[in-house]
């Protein structure tokens, strides 16, 4: 920090020097060259511009990367959906009655039931049991062979 001396009057120079302490009022008293004064502003401006450009470039890069990632994710999603549908189709094929029947007959030895040897269990046992007991006295109708006890000759064969 420096203090410039106040100008010495002619009157003072002839006798005792009229010295005073001058109180600094402002920086305006200090003179600088114009180029030196604008340097910080220019530097700051340059920094700001560079930062803005860098920011825009960064944003571009990030957006491009995001768009690329989004595209990849969408592709994977579509592929996964296709795979899902393909698997549903394969499951449906495996559950096809024709395939199951063919496998059961050829690999597992499945045969058709013999109708003559099939028993049918009548469901509403209580109701029928009551009726039968009242009618014929004790014949348990809960397990009827085809045609048995109907009196109408329900036939079991083809």
């Amino acid at each position: 920090m420096s203090v410039r001396p106040s100008p010495v009057s002619k009157r003072a120079s002839s006798g005792r020097a009229d010295l005073r302490i001058v109180k600094r009022r402002s920086r305006r008293l200090i003179r600088r060259s114009p180029s030196t004064r604008s340097t910080p502003l220019v530097v700051a401006g340059v920094i700001l511009v560079v930062a803005a450009i860098f920011g825009i470039l960064l944003e571009q890069v990030l957006m491009s990367q995001s768009a690329f990632k989004l595209g990849k994710i969408r592709e994977r999603m579509i592929a996964a959906q296709s795979r899902h549908e393909d698997l549903i189709f394969q499951v449906s094929q495996l559950e096809s009655d024709a395939r199951i029947e063919s496998y059961a007959r050829t690999e597992l030895g499945m045969v058709d039931a013999d109708p003559a040897r099939t028993e049918f269990i009548v469901a509403d046992i209580k109701y029928r049991l009551g009726n039968r007991l009242a009618r014929s006295g004790g014949d348990n109708p809960s397990r009827l062979r085809p045609g048995q006890g109907t009196g109408l000759g329900l036939r079991s064969g083809p």
Binding site: F120, R128, P141, T150, G151, L152
Partner: peptide
């Protein structure tokens, strides 16, 4: 008629309809 018998017999069993016993009842 025998074709009907096979088809409807299977459908009844597939639907879980219990055997119904005699026609008289």
């Amino acid at each position: 008629a025998p074709t009907f018998k096979a088809i409807v017999g299977h459908a009844l069993r597939e639907l879980g309809v219990p055997p119904t016993g005699s026609i008289e009842e």
